[in-house]
Simulated scan of single mutants.
Amino acid sequence: MSTADTVSYVGARLFFVTRRIALRRGDVPLTGGPAGVRPPVAGDRMEVRTEGVGTPANLVAGAAPPGTGRPDGSGDV
Results as ranks from 00 to 15, higher is better:
Leu23Phe: 10
Ser8Arg: 12
Gly73Ala: 05
Val28Leu: 13
Arg70Leu: 02
Ala63Trp: 09
Pro66Tyr: 04
Glu47Cys: 08
Tyr9Leu: 14
Glu47Pro: 08
Val41Tyr: 04
Pro56Asn: 00
Ala63Asp: 08
Arg38Glu: 07
Val53Glu: 12
Gly62Asn: 08
Gly62Glu: 09
Thr18Glu: 09
Tyr9Asn: 15
Leu30Asn: 05
Thr68Pro: 01
Leu59His: 10
Gly43Asn: 06
Ile21Gln: 10
Gly52Trp: 01
Gly54Asn: 05
Gly43Ala: 06
Ser2Thr: 15
Thr6Gln: 10
Arg24Gly: 12
Ala42Leu: 03
Thr6Ile: 13
Arg20Tyr: 08
Val77Cys: 13
Ala64Tyr: 01
Ala35Leu: 13
Ser74Glu: 01
Ala42His: 06
Met46Pro: 00
Arg25Asp: 11
Leu23Trp: 12
Asp5Cys: 11
Gly62Trp: 04
Gly52Ser: 04
Glu47Tyr: 08
Gly73Lys: 02
Pro39Gln: 06
Val48Met: 06
Pro29Leu: 12
Ser2His: 08
Tyr9Val: 15
Gly73Asp: 00
Tyr9Gly: 14
Phe15Asn: 13
Asp5Tyr: 09
Val60Arg: 00
Val37Leu: 05
Val10Met: 12
Met1Thr: 15
Ser74Gly: 03
Thr3Trp: 09
Val28Met: 15
Met1Ile: 05
Phe15Ala: 13
Gly69Lys: 00
Thr68Phe: 06
Pro39Glu: 10
Gly26His: 05
Gly32Thr: 06
Asp72Tyr: 02
Val53Phe: 01
Glu51Gln: 13
Gly11Arg: 08
Gly69Arg: 00
Pro71Ile: 06
Arg38Ala: 13
Glu51Asn: 04
Arg19Ile: 07
Asp76Met: 13
Ile21Ser: 12
Gly36Glu: 04
Gly43Cys: 10
Ser74His: 01
Ala4Pro: 11
Ala63Val: 05
Gly52Glu: 04
Thr55Arg: 15
Val53Cys: 02
Thr31Cys: 14
Thr31Asn: 14
Asp44Glu: 11
Gly54Phe: 10
Pro56Cys: 03
Thr3Cys: 11
Pro34His: 07
Ser2Ala: 13
Val28Thr: 08
Gly75Thr: 01
Gly62Ile: 00
Met1Leu: 08
Asp72Ile: 07
Met1Asp: 09
Arg20Cys: 09
Val77Lys: 13
Arg49Trp: 07
Val10Asp: 05
Val77Gln: 15
Phe16Gly: 13
Gly33Thr: 06
Val77Arg: 15
Glu51Met: 07
Leu14Asp: 07
Val41Ser: 04
Gly75Asp: 02
Val17Glu: 08
Val77Ser: 11
Ala12Met: 12
Ser2Gln: 14
Asp44Thr: 11
Ser2Asn: 10
Met1Val: 14
Val77Thr: 14
Asp27Cys: 01
Gly52Val: 00
Gly54Pro: 01
Val7Cys: 07
Gly32Tyr: 08
Pro29Asn: 02
Arg45Cys: 12
Pro56Phe: 03
Glu51Arg: 15
Thr3Gln: 08
Arg25Met: 10
Asp44Ser: 03
Arg49Met: 04
Ala35Gly: 11
Pro71Ala: 00
Asp27Trp: 03
Gly75Ser: 02
Pro56Asp: 01
Tyr9Ile: 12
Thr3Gly: 11
Asp27Lys: 09
